[in-house]
Every structure is written in structure tokens, then in C-alpha cells.
Design a protein around this nucleic acid. Structure first.
Ligand code: ZN
Ligand code: ZN
Ligand code: ZN
Ligand code: ZN
Lengths: 131, 131
DNA sequence: CCAGACTTTGACAATCATTATCAATTGTAC
DNA sequence: GTACAATTGATAATGATTGTCAAAGTCTGG
């Protein structure tokens, strides 16, 4: 059975108060800075569990690091992410969903999964860079 | 300036004769098995160069490994990949391209990039699994 | 054909994120 | 409370990738 520990709750809450995507390492550092003695391995495990349970979304940063986020949208969706400040916008795109399943079946593939992420510079970061 | 070495050519050729996506490690192993004394670091460097120069496409496997492939399509495109045997189909989807740029600009993002990959089981692997 | 200047190579060490270990701790059901 | 299985966390192990740097290779005049 699944137990309730303050560690798991701490991770859930820390993830909830974080705006963009965070890495396990980053969240662990934040928790430690906040005075929590939580262990790194536990943060990895908790994030993995949250992702499995659908409470968190995960993706790979362009540097190959696994990032997590507690999204407000319940269903399946994708993300538009600022590669400078991490600002994240949740996007739903039925057109992409149907396209993915269709391109898969059109080529005889079953059990399709897809990875769709858009990275860019948000308005604020664009302004800051241009200035 | 960029020099010509048999190592670079060996990597280019090995990549060309490989069907699906390969990892640096995998390509190095294949070259070694083929009798080449090429070094691992060199394979990493060569693949990275080929990717930079547009001669190879790269993506991250779902396990986080960097994979490379010499694609036949010249322009920008995406991939439909069998997660069992690695069979890869190159797919072009203008609809997805325009969607990505539009969703970015609609949210004030500039310099959009996107990652779009579809994974699944190819017809042969689907049959093998079901049988 | 050189020589010199500059690149590239490759064995090896160093990084760095992530996972495995495993004894000690802690939730939970009765 | 007791018993017992799940969880934790310090630490070691893993595994891909990158850094190092001396030795070897490549190219370009002369
Ligand atoms: Zn930004
Ligand atoms: Zn989707
Ligand atoms: Zn297959
Ligand atoms: Zn595209």
C-alpha cells in the first residue's frame, strides 16, 4: 500500500509552489534551503511517483535533464517553455493529437505515444535580450 | 579549418549504413566489431559535428540517450519510431510546423524551436507481440 | 619533398544525473 | 501497542557524456 509521509507531502507542496519546470536536483536544493532535511533519493522517488500518478508532468530539458511540473490542466496537454526563465504555458492542441495518432496508424504503427514541446523566449526575455 | 580524417569518414559511413537511430556508444561498438580501432571520444565528436552540419538528425531516446541518424530527407522533418526494433519513418507535417510557430507567437514567444517525435510499435513488432 | 603550424585523435580521468543498496526508521492495520 | 511491510537516506554504483593533453596526423607553402 501507499503510505503518507511528510517527505512526499513536502515534495508535492514544493512542486506546487514552483512556477515552471524543475529538476529533481533543483527541487531538492530548494527544499534544503527551506530547512527541510529531505534526502535527494527521496525527491527523485517522490517526483517519479507523482509523474506516474498523473499529478505531475515531466519532460526532458534540451540539456537532457528530467524536469517536473505540477500542471493546472488535468487532461493531456503540451507545453510552451521559455528557455531563458522557464516560464511555462500549458497548451492543448487537438489537431496535434489527432495528427499523431493518424500518422502512426497510417504507417501501421500501434500504441502511439508522442513527445511535443515548444521552446522559445517569452515576451519579457525577448525584450531583455533585445535591449 | 576542418580536416579530413578516416575516422570522420568511417563514422559518416557507418551512420549511413545504419537503418534506424543509433547511439554514439552503439555506433562505436559497431565500428569496433567491424575491425576499426576508432576511439569512443572521436565517435562522439564526429556525430556531434555531423549533427551541427545538418548531415545527421539527432533526438533523445525515451531513456534519455542521444541518438543519431543520417536521414534521406534534406529539409526539416520529424520521425515515427518503433520503440521495439528502431524502424524509423521520416514524416513531414507542415500543419505541425505552422501550429508550432503560431502557438509561440500567440503567446508572445520568439525564436521558437520544437521537439516533435512519435513512438509506437511498427506493424511487424505489433504482430510479433500479439502472437 | 619537407617543415612548421595547426587539428584531430584517443586513452583516461572527471562530471553529473540518476539508480541501486540496505540498514534504520516509520506508517498502518489489527 | 505490536507486527510487518513500505519508506527513507547516506552512500556507492552506474552510465552516458565531456574534458585533458601528449602524441600523431593533415595541410600548406616553399
Ligand atoms: Zn523568459
Ligand atoms: Zn499530445
Ligand atoms: Zn518494430
Ligand atoms: Zn518541425
Amino acid at each position: 500500500m501507499k503510505r503518507n509521509t511528510w517527505q512526499r507531502e513536502a515534495v508535492r507542496e514544493a512542486l506546487g509552489t514552483t512556477d515552471g519546470f524543475v529538476s529533481a536536483q533543483g527541487l531538492h536544493a530548494a527544499l534544503r534551503d527551506g530547512g527541510s532535511p529531505i534526502g535527494l533519493a527521496t525527491v527523485y522517488r517522490a517526483l517519479s511517483d507523482l509523474a506516474d500518478g498523473g499529478e505531475a508532468d515531466s519532460l526532458q530539458s534540451m540539456e537532457g535533464e528530467a524536469l517536473y511540473r505540477a500542471c493546472s490542466t488535468d487532461g493531456h496537454h503540451h507545453h510552451l517553455i521559455c528557455r531563458n526563465c522557464g516560464l511555462t504555458v500549458e497548451i492543448e492542441a487537438d489537431a496535434v493529437e489527432t495528427w499523431a495518432t493518424q500518422v502512426a496508424s497510417a504507417n501501421g504503427f500501434s500504441q502511439p505515444q508522442h513527445i511535443v514541446d515548444v521552446f522559445g523566449l517569452c515576451a519579457a526575455c525577448t525584450r531583455a535580450t533585445t535591449a
